[in-house]
Amino acid sequence: MSDELVTPQASSLPHAACNTCPAYTNAQLRKLGLDVSGWDYTVALAGNPNTGKSTVFNALTGLRQHTGNWAGKTVTRAEGGFRFQGKRYKLVDLPGTYSLLSTSADEEVARDFLLFGQPHVTVIVADATRLERNLNLVLQILAITDSVVVAVNLIDEARRHGIMIDERGLARDLGVPVVPIVARRGEGLPELLSTIAQVASGAIRPRPRHVPLRDAALERAVKQLVAQIEAVFPNLPQAYWVALRLLDGDASIAQAVREGTIGDLTRGQAVAPIALEAA
């Protein structure tokens, strides 16, 4: 896979001026705010808590979700729209999550949407200053969907802290496009938009790295179970992930399999009301 394929704009923010150029602001991007009717593509915004997802969301949709600098600020998913190069996109801002493997109630919203909402493109916003920890979630998401764009945000902060990131190498390692951005100044957003558009249209076909489980017995078990899951639920989008959860003893997933409702998670909605009587 060539670099050009996965990093259309890998060099460090070459087009910050595009922000103000008329082609970007007027002709190509139309912020549609809350108007999400008749969209062509759904784009999910995922990432660790506090990486600037909401800032990206606001910048693209023209909405003003408040962003606070702490984990758990966004507890529900927000939706907005934008139009770019004639296509209408629905953008879904998911609550921050550290992992898809063990979830708390607020993270479930993000997990269910990523797994079963089948967005056309998933943009993972990663914090350049805490990239190693962010890569944990990136690699987990790469295991369940191919259409991923990684937006490495806060690269100005990283630079201030003496951290330099080789986006080209990162894109090669991950097998998906990587776009460096400074969301709050709008830098890199034109590149991010065009990358999203290219992944959505199929012009870029990411080939994400799948983390070897480094465990032959586990690999065999997952493979065996995936085959069985696909036999029982032929249209289930995330057999690999469901297999891992079953092997991990996830009671709620086992219950969903037993009742045959596992496919219904597709519309994974907001957090369920809390149990009325405390345990």
């Binding site: 992992s99 493997l101 063990s102 990239l131 190693e132 920890r133 890569l135 944990n136 990136v138 690699l139 987990q140 802290h161 003496g162 951290i163 330099m164 990131i165 080789d166 986006e167 190498g169 990162l170 390692d173 991950l174 790295r209 983390v211 070897p212 489980l213 480094r214 465990d215 586990l218 891992l244 092997l247 991990d248 003893g249």
Partner: peptide, 27 residues
């Protein structure tokens, strides 16, 4: 299993981070 999967992913994350992140020691 969760431990093993998490460790496998973090091992990978660390390797990728080591290859792609360079840190200025002054900080």
């Amino acid at each position: 299993l969760h431990d093993r999967v998490s460790e496998a992913i973090y091992t990978e994350a660390t390797q990728i981070a080591n290859r792609t992140i360079s840190t200025d020691s002054r900080q």
